[in-house]
Design a protein around this nucleic acid. Structure first.
Lengths: 344, 344
DNA sequence: CTGTTAGCGCATTCAG
DNA sequence: CTGAATGCGCTAACAG
């Protein structure tokens, strides 16, 4: 069904229908006819063709590394909030943590096209920089620092440092500190958090010793493996600090696995309902991200709250500023953090 | 930058450039020229215009109720897997559990347009049926039964019944059963699971008594509130069964909140590391969905594993069958389930 | 192999 | 107020 057919059926020109659809001048009489035909046919104008003409889609694309993440969903919630208030819709593309796919989807959005893109960044490769420099549609990067686009990022270094300090403080005389990080190609989560963490420890006179660190993927399963490996190899770990709460969840699972071995079967299977049992190992876990699910189920571990929703809100605002007002001044925005459950 | 400009710069016709881009016949000589110009200019063809011509976007849209959900991410992972293998890309639209937004995004996808849509369904309203009947692009519904489109759904009733039976079995003589459900407008999660659950209990001679049920949203917070309310009003609850693992996580949090009140401060704050402590209330929680995060952190609660990834895979295959081969025979597919952690 | 031509569905001049 | 005409960027005949 095209605008032309509607025009014929209503006995008017296609231009009249177009005007009817977009609030131009049409006589009441013709308005009626057109309205009737549209209702009868269930006509839906092709966004496609309109965008080709107008260059405006009222649509922004968001590229995310994965879908199943509380932090990312908080960011997208922030974005969606300002977008919908200003008459835009949001489309998501998930890359499953593959930087190559990020480029693919960025290009898809560019050529689709959408009016703007927000990239929830993991690593910024040369390809990324090239895209950011050449993109026809404005892009804002959330979660990573970059000089090639407007960006909003978190104080990962500061957060790492703060965490390092409280960890150092609570670990004195109880054992060693271990750290499960992620690839340093992720400047924010991989490099900054770990560097900050080491700095924080050092400020309190504690070192992260060799053999006490592991690299993990951004998954619970991977965190579990890393923690298990640590726990098996080193018997004097008092705290395992993890680069994300998801990894921390995996570490907690590993702790359970180790603890169970030490709990007599008779107790494990006794009719009495156990929800808590004294954990003889005494190893503790910390994370980053303030995952609410983790908090609910475990009662909370020491972690860091970042303003994820805020970064989404600010990011979308920045984007709309350049889309609608052609704002040209580059902006970098750094958001703070808050330590939570320091005492746990 | 348009194909025409590229053609001029390369000294060929726009058709030649188009052929170059799409693998048609072009002499090696011209290939070189075109390649050079494209590289120099960083030209990106407009997907836009191509789709307008070809009616094929190699793109499918997926409408989901929320982003931060393990079950949904499993479905989308399944979809993405078959899509990417067959040269399609996937765009997501999240509706934040608002059925009205579902319609909006379905229409967006229809007119954008994409080649096909998969709707991860919550409730199927009249608006939905209308859309499914009239849609220009094929739709498959995942997670809900409907006769208005190809659909793939899970045996929620059977799963509920199986859960009801083991709950009845383990609760005998220990107290009452409580149930936290969701809106019955969600036929699968709201109605079928609860009806099945009641049937399962009844088959074992147990009843879900009045005052022992609550309605919750699909959030942890809401599950927490519902469970807290139950726990405060009724003191003889042996098991709280929840319609989703997310709600169950909230219920676990509520349990913690109640238990803590009974644990002397001195123990709570003693230097010894507590990870498990005997829970005097003895109330247990069950869920649906086999959430891995929950399993990792708690060691696992009785729950049901649905083939979410499988439903995504099958759904995408069904969709591509009608997109590419014009398959016209309507299909309904019911997937089974598996009880997990029955013994916990 | 190659260029010319004619639309895809729509919004926007520009004369009426 | 209204319709005819033009072109957004691209691909698919078609005739060379």
């Amino acid at each position: 069904m095209t605008i032309k057919e509607i025009a014929q059926l209503a006995g008017v020109s296609s231009a009249a229908v177009s005007r009817y659809l977009n609030g131009g001048y049409v006589s009441d009489e013709k308005k009626e006819q057109i309205k009737k035909v549209i209702e009868e046919t269930g006509y839906q104008p092709s966004a496609q063709a309109r965008i080709l003409r107008t260059k405006r889609a009222c649509l922004v694309g968001v590229v995310v590394p994965k879908i199943n993440s509380e932090s990312i969903s908080r960011v997208t919630a922030g974005i969606e909030q300002v977008l919908s208030r200003r008459g835009y819709q949001m489309l998501l593309a998930s890359t499953d943590n593959q930087p190559a796919k990020e480029i693919t989807y960025l290009k898809l959005f560019e050529s689709y096209p959408v009016d703007g893109i927000v990239l929830i960044g993991t690593m910024i490769t040369g390809e990324h920089k090239k895209f950011l420099k050449e993109s026809k549609v404005p892009v804002v990067v959330v979660g990573q620092y970059t000089k090639y686009a407007n960006c909003i990022y978190h104080d990962d270094y500061g957060a790492g440092k703060a965490m390092g300090k409280i960890v150092a403080d609570s670990v004195r005389g109880k054992g060693k500190v271990a750290y499960i990080g992620v690839t340093r190609e992720d400047k924010a989560v991989g490099a900054a958090r770990e560097d900050g963490f080491r700095a924080g420890l050092r400020a309190e006179g504690v070192e992260l010793e060799e053999g006490y660190t592991r690299k993990s993927q951004f998954t619970m399963e991977s965190g579990y493996q890393a923690a298990l490996d640590l726990l098996e190899k080193k018997k004097d770990i008092a705290i395992i600090s993890c680069a994300t709460d998801t990894i921390a969840a995996g570490a907690i699972e590993a702790l359970h696995a180790c603890s169970e071995e030490r709990i007599p079967q008779s107790i494990q299977n006794s009719g009495t309902r156990m929800k808590y049992i004294l954990d003889s190992s005494g190893t503790r876990i910390t994370g980053f991200g303030d995952n609410q699910f983790l908090k609910a189920v475990t009662g909370g571990i020491p972690t860091v709250h970042f303003g994820y929703k805020t970064s989404g809100i600010r990011g979308a605002e920045l984007l709309l500023d350049v889309i609608e007002r052609g704002e040209k001044i580059p902006i970098e925005m750094k958001l703070g953090f808050q330590l939570v459950n320091e005492d746990k």
